[in-house]
Design a protein around this nucleic acid. Structure first.
Lengths: 108, 108
DNA sequence: TTCGTAGTTTGCAAATATACGAACAGTTTC
DNA sequence: GAAACTGTTCGTATATTTGCAAACTACGAA
């Protein structure tokens, strides 16, 4: 039975997943640091960001699960950096979304 | 007393707010429709999207509160469209975030 | 081995988000 | 006015998110 409703596409799901990960100011701040400095240590971030380190860990985990960052253990600390492929993918998906309206801002 | 923690900036808060609004596949789908067609009626969307009309209303409200869309009553239906200024702002904020890494994908 | 440092995981509480049907409100049509 | 149509709000249930402290793991240094 066809109700006429479209299912959502994997691309829409993926973009929403990325957007959701970006949907918290602390995570935005994390990504800005990583995007601008290539990588960063948990410790450095926890000194700058206004959250407890356990909370920071959770945000980093969230970003990792969304695929936007990756972390590697470099004793005694943990180094995080942008996940290049997925970052590029996210960039492309956001661009695609924003692209269309540019010449078309009139509300008929 | 300075704890050394930075507060988050209004820009980070704003970007996170936009991203959060984009953080659901149905809302992504809504915005794609609006971005590609200038505007759309609630009724048209509710025939396409796999959610109850009351749920659709909630998603539209969420997008409106984030500032990404605007709705006008055009009896007997309601017309929604992109909010041009805020859409452009969101585009800029996302671009700024993604810009930096492009030449810098190596994880040292 | 014991201590200290660096992060993660757990446990918990409060706040938000998601979804739906039912009830409601505003218009147009009959 | 009554009925039909369109969309929002309400009530409810459930699930997810957020934040922190405390407990825990892993590793290197004393």
């Amino acid at each position: 039975m066809n109700t006429g409703k479209d299912k959502l596409t994997p691309e829409q799901e993926r973009l929403a997943r990325f957007a959701k990960a970006l949907g918290h100011p602390v995570r935005v701040a994390i990504l800005q640091m990583l995007a601008r400095q290539t990588c960063c240590y948990h410790g450095d971030m926890s000194e700058i960001l206004p959250v407890a380190k356990s909370t920071l860990s959770q945000h980093l985990k969230e970003l990792k699960e969304a695929g936007l960052i990756q972390g590697t253990i470099t004793p005694p600390s943990v180094k995080y950096c942008i996940h290049p492929e997925n970052w590029a993918l996210a960039n492309r998906l956001f661009d695609d979304l924003f692209f269309h309206i540019e010449t078309n801002t009139e509300c008929r």
